[in-house]
Amino acid sequence: MKHRLKAVSIFMLTFAYIISYYLLCSTPPYQNIVKGEILSTRSIILTNLVTASFVAFAYFHKKSIYKTIAIVCILFSSFAVLPHSKFLIGSGEIEKFIPTEITAVMMLGVIVFLMFALRFKKFEEYLKEWPLEGVEEREIHKILKEKIKFYSVFNILISGVCLFLIATGFKTFYENASASFVVFTAFLGLAVITGCIAFISKSIFFTK
């Protein structure tokens, strides 16, 4: 189970890295730096070498390679996400970037994969710690299997809901929806966010 968990978490991390790397490569500033040769061996090696040295540096300081790669992934993705901001200088060249909808979905994918990778890493740690505490191996496997099952269903469900909301949101804002529908959606979103915050704060601060 230990090897399977490791393999799955590495696979998820790699997948997140590839998507974020693709997002980085699609940005015009990066294309300018590498003079348009995104797929040339030189640019790939150089970019990944810089990343690897950053990961190595962070690893020696924090001893957490997974978190460092996650930060790198978010950093790469942010180069593609931020130019879509309306208030940011340079947003005028937005047509040269990947479309907003696809960027949003890809960003969502990066986040979901990173969450899976980090959670599986945590499970891997349990697999090391619990036997030392005296937990039976059979019980550990059962608990981890149940946790993985539960977490996967939960994560996919939440991500699905988020994907649906993103899709609905873009459809609403970009396909000339009526003003009343936009206002209604905005209020609905605001109500959901406020409700969530109220519920979470109640659970955190007022539950003994």
Binding site: S85, L88, M107, L165, F173, I200
Partner: peptide, 18 residues
């Protein structure tokens, strides 16, 4: 930044928590 992607993605951790 008035960024729609960031606004919508922020809903993921919130939904996770709630």
């Amino acid at each position: 930044f008035a960024n729609n992607i960031l606004l919508m993605i922020s809903f993921i951790p919130l939904a996770f928590l709630a």
